[in-house]
Design a protein around this nucleic acid. Structure first.
Length: 488
RNA sequence: GGCGGCGUAGCCAAGUGGCUAAGGCAGCGGUCUGCAAAACCGUUAUUCACCGGUUCAACUCCGGUCGCCGCCUCCA
């Protein structure tokens, strides 16, 4: 079984065949560090984190590079606004990014190179492009000569003529062709500057990724990824630069994820409809966000809303509850009678891992994979619910193995990492703290209610329950005792 | 205007030539309970935006129509 991945360039799914057997080399475009990250960035990080985890689970060694753009116009402008240096600003937001990633439980990539730390490689690449006639100096700037690269437009499915006809870019006298793009920008006073054969200046936006992917992954590597909005011009330009300079193939597979939308519109700074990762994590757990993100296949847009997050939260609780209930099952069997799980139920639980793999092998279909997990939960709940007081060994084993399998698979998606019993406990404690309640008060009220119940004073008992409910406490009567939990 | 994507139950979301159209959320009926809650069981699309075509067979392929979104300018 091979893993199939949708490749933007060919427009279809292609089997993943790493250049080096068993070793996947992947480059992903990271953030430009000039502001707090929004949940679109979170989706990107989460999606690639999931891919890396899954590839490793499938036995691949993965070299995963995700860069930082730490020099560009936005950084310079923002630094000026904040009366700081571009270096300080970029560093600060890289730090914020790392904090966000840690809270999201996103594992660190193999390397996180920064543009400003790769000037020699960038300069080498530009020099090679000039030598090969693919780039030219104009004043203090260096531009890529777009019409010298015959495949220009192949990734994004356009051609030069169309683009020239519909160009919205202002004519720049310094360029031979309006679509030519900057590899090197001569510096203006007060801007960060590096020495180069073309005078003092700084790299253009696209060249850093060509230089850094080459540095760490070689001229040709397996997967290049990013958000859909990077297809053009960023990735198109990267291909032009890299192939133009090396003459070799660049990335074999191009992977692009869809956007996070709000009311079906792309989240963006200009529309002002974005939520930072911090905004969201102040309201929801990281794990809830993960479940929400993975409930849609990565290429499709995912619409953020309170309702969707609430649904994700309920779903997550359902998964944890299943594990918690199984963890509380008796250690030893009470009977040596045959179990009650049917053949098909057994098959469903035992075949979970295989089905999960099938879904994930198909272009990382996390939505389908999660569906399978929930289906297994349903099956296990059904068996558990029907268990007699003295359950059979085969049923207990099946449920424990099923739970273990469920947990293991969910871990690949970064879910269900917490002890299920602790999860509930923690949610409870958080809630109480937030609402200024404590367990003693609640238990006091429950005792009063139980006293009323013993006296069969149902009216008073119900009044007490209503009171608890208003505090956000749900109670559950079992034979002989009452448990309570917070309403989440 | 050019290019690309999407339209599946109340909402979200898989499936993508033939097996009962996954799963989640919400709703309803039931089991349980003094009543509840949780959990479970059952139920909610004879139908996949619409219209044609190909095929023994289409939600799935092809053509058209409508609607929504994205890229073409910095963007995950």
């Amino acid at each position: 079984m091979t893993i199939e991945i949708f490749d933007t360039k060919s427009g279809r799914k292609a089997p993943l065949v790493p250049l080096e057997a068993g070793h996947v080399r992947m480059y992903v475009c990271g953030i430009t560090a000039y502001d707090y990250c929004h949940i679109g960035h979170a989706r990107s990080a989460l999606v690639f984190d999931m891919m890396v985890r899954y590839l490793r689970h499938r036995g691949y060694r993965v070299t995963y590079i995700r860069n930082f753009t730490d020099i560009d116009d936005k950084i310079i402008n923002r630094a000026r606004e904040q009366q700081t240096t571009p270096e300080e600003l970029a560093e600060r937001f890289i730090r914020m990014f790392h904090e966000d990633m840690e809270r999201l439980g996103v594992a660190a990539p193999t390397l996180e190179p920064k543009a400003t730390e790769h000037l020699p490689q960038i300069i080498t690449l530009i020099t090679q492009l000039i030598e090969r006639g693919m780039a030219y100096q104009s004043g203090q700037d260096v531009f890529f000569r777009v019409d010298r690269f015959k495949d220009y437009g192949a990734l994004s499915g356009r051609n030069l003529e169309e683009m020239q006809a519909g160009a919205r870019i202002a004519i720049n006298e310094a360029k031979e062709n309006p679509l030519d793009f900057a590899l090197w920008k001569g510096s203006k006073p007060g801007e960060p500057t590096w020495e180069s054969p073309w005078g003092p200046g700084r790299p253009g936006w696209h060249i850093e990724c060509s230089a850094m992917s080459r540095e760490y992954l070689g001229d040709t590597f397996d997967i290049h990824g990013g958000g859909k909005d990077l297809v053009f011009p960023h990735h198109e330009n990267e291909i032009a630069q890299s192939c133009g300079a090396t003459g070799a193939a660049f990335a074999n597979l191009w992977v692009h994820h869809g956007f996070v939308t709000i009311k079906d519109e792309k989240m963006s700074k200009s529309l002002g409809n974005f939520l930072t990762i911090r905004d969201v994590l102040a309201r929801y757990e990281a794990e809830t966000l993960r479940l929400f993100i993975f409930s849609t296949q990565y290429r499709n847009p995912v619409d953020f809303s309170e309702e969707a997050m609430a649904a994700a939260e309920t779903g997550l609780r359902r998964l944890y509850a299943c594990l918690a209930e199984i963890a509380l099952l008796p250690e030893t069997a009470g009977t040596d009678k045959p179990g009650l799980a049917t053949q098909s139920e057994q098959k469903k639980i035992k075949g979970l891992a295989e089905q999960f793999q099938e879904a994930m092998d198909n272009d990382f279909n996390t939505a389908q994979a999660l569906g399978l997990l929930f289906e297994a939960v349903k099956t296990m709940n059904r068996i558990r619910q029907a268990l007699p007081r003295k359950p059979a060994a085969s049923d207990l084993t099946l449920l424990r193995q099923g739970a273990e399998s469920l947990r293991g698979l969910a871990t690949i998606l970064g879910l269900l990492g917490e002890n299920p019993l602790c999860y509930t406990q923690r949610k409870q404690t958080d809630f109480l703290k937030e609402h200024g309640l404590d367990a003693a008060t609640i238990e006091g009220l429950i005792e009063q209610r139980n006293a009323a119940r013993v006296a069969k004073n149902w009216q008073q008992a119900d009044a007490l329950r209503d009171r608890l409910q208003k505090l956000g406490i749900e109670i559950q009567d079992s034979a002989g005792f009452t448990t309570w939990k917070v309403r989440m």
